Computed example of a mutant assay.
Amino acid sequence: MKAKRYIAAILLTGLSKFATAQTPRIDIKVKGLYPEGTVYDAAQAKFFVSSVVDGTIGTVDKQGKYTKFYQDKSMRSTYGMKVDAKRNRLWVCVSDANYSQYSDSSTFKKLGRLIALDTKTGKKVADIDLAKLYNGKHFINDLTLDEAGNAYVTDSFSPVIYKVDANGKASVLAQSDLWKGEDIGLNGIVYNPAGFLLVADGRAGAIYKVDIKNAKAINKVKIDQFLPGADGMLLQDNNTIVLVQNKGVDKIFQIYSIDNWQTAKIKAATAATDRFQQPSTATMADGKIFVLNSKLNELADPTKKPSISFPLQEAVFKPAE
């Protein structure tokens, strides 16, 4: 009987460990890196990652090996990024919003740039000043691209979305009093081929739809869930997006719409046992969704020692009840 009870206890322990196991991870072991943005480049089979601490842009292979790709102290911090595969360009959001070790009074909450690097050589091929387009504080946070190579960029400290066309000409595409307020506002953004943008507002916990041809047509998507700390977004198909939420929730959601994004519902979400750590942005790699554990919340606590690992973690969804 004792032997049977012992075996049963082992089985139960094993099942318990299996039930709480985290999803697969690619471990980026670079002490104090604190990356916020990531994107997968299928041509090189590598991820690009940013850094809010020193502005470094690096590559990460599927074994977690990190290699510096580009560094320029004038960039202060780097955030969201996207690859334009047709043009071999890596677009990167650059600002001085919070935790840069190179921050100073001339750039703090003032710097707002969008740069492009050649994905093969690392040479900078574009450097666009967005801050001059709108009078206010600036935090250039995330971007999306359309088929023509136009970039649409969010400013988390000003209520605007910028457009940078394929020739590098920048303008304010949309602005709204709906997006005004303190703290981080507009953040993740996706382009829908139907001709509109979906943008996450972490301050309001909402998603907005913006018509590209008529950018004054801004509508809040009706959704039966409040999403404070909504961060990066990823388009899976015209009717489905992936949304990353932090602010202590630290979950990833699949959200879908059947009426062209007038309304939307939560389709599925990651489990609490996956234990994401201040997730920020998501990217698709070989049909799987990987989410960056930025751990940026640690930087607000001066007593914490710098983390040595920042995993890219697979998002595995369970249907919403």
Rank of each mutant, 00 (worst) to 15 (best):
V49H: 02
T23K: 03
K31G: 04
K86F: 01
S77W: 02
G58R: 10
Y99S: 14
K82D: 09
F47E: 00
Y70L: 08
G55C: 08
G58E: 12
T67Q: 15
A19Q: 14
M81G: 04
A43T: 09
A116L: 00
D104M: 12
L114K: 01
R89D: 07
Y40S: 00
G37Y: 11
Y99G: 13
A42T: 10
R25Q: 11
D54I: 13
G80L: 02
V60W: 01
P35S: 06
K123L: 08
Y99K: 14
K110Q: 14
R25V: 10
L114S: 00
K73C: 04
D96Y: 04
D72P: 04
Y66M: 09
K65P: 02
Q44L: 14
S103G: 07
V30L: 06
K31C: 04
L90Q: 07
K110E: 13
V30D: 05
N98H: 08
G112L: 05
A45P: 13
K123E: 13
N88W: 01
L33I: 08
V60T: 06
M75H: 14
A21K: 11
S50W: 08
A85P: 03
Y79V: 11
S74M: 09
Y99F: 15
S106M: 11
G80H: 06
Q63T: 14
G64D: 05
C93H: 03
A21D: 07
D84K: 04
Y102T: 10
A21Q: 11
Y70K: 07
K65M: 05
S105Q: 15
V53Y: 12
T23L: 00
K62E: 07
D96T: 07
G80P: 04
M81A: 00
D54G: 11
G32D: 09
A97E: 15
T107I: 11
K68W: 06
P35Y: 05
W91M: 01
K31T: 12
L114C: 06
K65C: 07
K29G: 05
S95F: 00
S50P: 06
Y34V: 00
D96F: 08
A42Y: 05
L111E: 05
Q22K: 13
T67I: 13
Q71T: 12
K31L: 03
K109F: 12
D104A: 11
G37A: 09
K110G: 11
S95I: 03
P24D: 01
M75Q: 13
K110Y: 09
Y79G: 02
S74E: 08
Q71H: 14
W91A: 04
V53M: 15
K109R: 15
K29S: 12
G37S: 11
T56E: 14
